[in-house]
Design a protein around this nucleic acid. Structure first.
Lengths: 234, 234
DNA sequence: GGATGCGTTTATGCATACATTAATTGATGC
DNA sequence: GCATCAATTAATGTATGCATAAACGCATCC
């Protein structure tokens, strides 16, 4: 097959020279996160290979990585199956996120942040405020994601950051779907502002308490939302 | 090549009929955990394939999984490199373990355990006592591992359990090496007994506090031990 | 009409072939 | 003697070939 065949999305120059297996991994993951391969649906190795313009080998490698991350399930003869997120699964994921990000908040407050880092955090909070005022949910969720990422980076634990990203990705589609169903995240913003203050004050215990409460509330809201809407899988 | 060639460790009947990629994954991981492939050492795909009596394909798949787990690093042209555990890495790993297992202890106390489960936990504690009294460090560490595994299972969160195992494996070699260097784990046993009581009493907050303190102390001890002995990598 | 069994198809799992590229070695020039 | 550059080697990354085994369809039988 012609090496330059491009069936899938066009690639930036930079992406084009990445190893095919890495491209396969990123593109498949993106397709899943964007809900373009819906939960529960299956995709054969050969299908994916054709779609991405490469052979089965790098595609298989990508699928193995995605399985290891908990995004898909590999069933022999049926290719990969995008794992649906049940309400119970969502509860499990948020229980883990609460623990990990709570530890991150504590560590961030213990280590302290410099002015530039605090400004970044504050900027994300402000961004959320603005988005909320203008009913821009997409912008709000982007700023929220940025806030959480910055927070976790402040903890200065690379393994922790990688784990949080991995687990958080598993809940991505659920957040996406419920974004328009949930009440306006007003309380969320208050929590974030209070957390920034706790980090500024170098108060690890308070930082952790605030963030854990924040995550727990978000989890309860999300899970009951999903349950009440009868969404068996996302 | 003859399909039955067996260069590596002999396999049980059961293991023999597992997919080659699964065998490769388990055997390579075991070799790493047992320190038979020392930290920092490299192994080419072809070497591993010859050693395991299979082709590069399943070996490569196994290596990808091990990399995703943080056990090895894949460097093009140099095969896989067993990641050494620096004191800083150990601190990172224990920070994560503390958070995850703390959450597990809390959940276990919240959900409660039935008599059989409590008995299993208690039995592990007793086992540690006996092992300690007879200076049997191997037995002690086995019982300790069992206790932690039971505890995490009690939380009833499969994703959490899988993550804890993955992260805990990363610290395995460090525990192994320091087992004979550390002071006798007397306090450890007291912590465990107190934790069982907290679960019995259905006191989530206390369970979590006890276990987090336990892990934090263990972490401090391990990290400073490793640092003081000048062990740059394990 | 439905179930059962056989032959065919198909996707995988692994082995192998091939192209690519980094490392190494050796030769040559200074 | 040392540095530079080309040629060779070696290991990967990807594609392809092939055996296996599961799923499917179809025909036959009850």
């Amino acid at each position: 097959m012609n090496r330059t065949t491009q069936v899938a999305a066009s690639l930036s120059e930079e992406e084009a020279r990445l190893p095919a297996s890495e491209r396969a991994y990123r593109q498949l993951k993106q397709l899943i996160l964007d809900n373009e391969i819906p939960a529960g649906s299956q995709m054969l190795e050969l299908e994916a290979a054709a779609r991405l313009g490469m052979s089965r080998t790098p595609v298989r490698e990508a699928m193995v990585r995605l399985e290891q991350e908990g995004m898909v399930e590999l069933r022999s003869r049926h290719g990969m199956r995008v794992l649906p997120i049940s309400p119970d699964a969502l509860a499990e994921i948020y229980e883990i996120l609460t623990a990990l990000e709570g530890a991150a908040a504590e560590a961030a407050a213990r280590k302290g942040a410099d002015d530039s880092q605090l400004a970044d955090l504050q900027h994300a909070v402000d961004d959320m405020e603005v988005a909320l005022a203008s009913d821009d949910l997409i912008r709000w969720s982007r700023a929220d994601a940025r806030f959480h990422r910055l927070l976790v980076e402040l903890a200065g634990n690379r393994r922790l950051a990688a784990l949080v990203e991995q687990v958080s990705d598993q809940a991505h589609r659920a957040r996406l779907t419920t974004l328009r169903m949930r009440p306006k995240p007003v309380g969320s913003n208050r929590d974030h502002a209070a957390l920034v203050q706790a980090i500024r004050d170098r108060d690890p215990q308070r930082a952790r308490d605030i963030h854990e409460q924040h995550r727990r509330r978000a989890a309860q809201m999300l899970v009951s939302l999903v349950r009440d809407f009868g969404l068996k899988q996302l």
